[in-house]
Computed example of a mutant assay.
Amino acid sequence: MKVLAACGSGMGSSQIIKMKLANVFRKQGIPVEIHHCAIGEAKSIARNFDLIFCSKALTDIFEGANLGNAKVIGLQNLLSEKEITQRLLETLEEK
């Protein structure tokens, strides 16, 4: 599975999300390739990923974007592995 972590500038927050995602996917036993970048770049490359994680406040940026089969997952608390796990499992059930 290819996953993208995106934040406003592509620096700190996306790197933190990436680390949290790695922990969650490892605990769930799901093989994953995780990348991180700025939200603007994420919008243009979204179709190359299965899942995109970002702040809930930034999800509207993906409106009108070519997402292909990618699902955008907005997080209220970027540091919460519990929330990431919950949203991940909900999204996988929908697929």
Rank of each mutant, 00 (worst) to 15 (best):
M1C: 01
K2L: 02
V3E: 03
V3F: 01
V3N: 04
L4R: 07
A5M: 06
A6L: 03
A6G: 02
A6F: 04
C7F: 02
G8H: 12
S9D: 03
G12S: 13
G12N: 13
S14M: 10
Q15Y: 10
Q15A: 14
Q15S: 11
Q15N: 03
I16K: 06
I17H: 03
K18Y: 08
K18A: 14
M19D: 13
K20F: 02
A22S: 14
A22E: 15
N23F: 00
F25H: 03
F25I: 05
F25W: 06
R26H: 13
R26N: 14
R26T: 14
R26L: 12
K27C: 00
Q28M: 13
G29Y: 10
I30K: 07
P31F: 03
V32Q: 07
V32E: 05
E33I: 11
E33G: 01
I34Q: 08
A38F: 01
I39Q: 04
I39C: 06
E41G: 00
A42E: 10
A42Y: 06
S44V: 14
I45V: 15
R47I: 04
F49I: 02
D50T: 12
D50L: 02
L51I: 08
I52W: 08
F53H: 09
S55G: 15
S55I: 00
S55C: 11
K56Q: 14
A57T: 11
L58M: 14
L58Q: 13
T59H: 02
I61V: 14
I61T: 11
I61G: 00
E63T: 10
E63P: 00
N66K: 12
N66I: 05
N66L: 05
N66T: 08
L67H: 12
G68C: 09
A70H: 05
V72E: 09
V72W: 05
V72Y: 09
G74W: 10
L78D: 02
L78C: 02
L79D: 02
S80I: 05
E81Y: 01
E81H: 01
K82N: 12
T85W: 00
T85L: 09
T85Q: 15
Q86S: 12
Q86M: 07
L88D: 07
E90P: 00
E90H: 04
E90S: 11
T91G: 01
T91Q: 08
L92S: 06
L92H: 05
K95Y: 08
